[in-house]
Simulated assay, not measured.
Amino acid sequence: MTAVEVHSSTKAKRATSPSKAGKSKPNPKQSKPAAAPAGQSDTLSRSTKQDRILSLLSQRNGATIPEMMQATEWRQHSVRGFLAGTVKKKLGLNLTSSKSDGELRRYRIVPRHGR
Rank of each mutant, 00 (worst) to 15 (best):
T64F: 03
L91Q: 13
W74Q: 00
K99M: 13
A12L: 08
Q76E: 15
R80S: 14
P37M: 11
S45N: 06
M1N: 06
H113Y: 05
G85R: 06
K32D: 11
A71E: 01
K11L: 15
G85T: 07
A15C: 06
L44M: 12
L44S: 05
A84R: 12
I109A: 04
S100R: 14
R108N: 08
A84F: 03
V110Y: 06
A35V: 09
P28C: 01
S45F: 02
S8V: 11
S9N: 11
T10H: 14
A36T: 09
L54S: 08
P26A: 12
K32F: 09
P33H: 04
Q70H: 03
V110D: 08
L104E: 14
Q76K: 14
A12W: 03
S97W: 04
T64N: 00
T10M: 15
M1R: 08
A63I: 00
Q40K: 09
M69I: 10
A34I: 15
R115L: 13
T10Q: 14
L91H: 09
S98D: 13
A38C: 04
W74L: 06
E103Y: 08
G81A: 15
E67V: 11
S19T: 07
I53D: 00
H77A: 14
T16W: 06
T72A: 05
E103R: 09
L56N: 00
T64G: 03
R46C: 09
S98T: 09
S78D: 11
K49M: 09
T48Y: 12
I65P: 02
E67C: 13
S17F: 11
L44I: 07
P66I: 02
M69L: 05
T10K: 12
A3L: 15
K99C: 09
S97Q: 13
E67H: 11
H7Q: 11
L83M: 11
M1A: 10
R60E: 15
N27F: 03
S41K: 12
N27L: 10
A12P: 00
A12E: 04
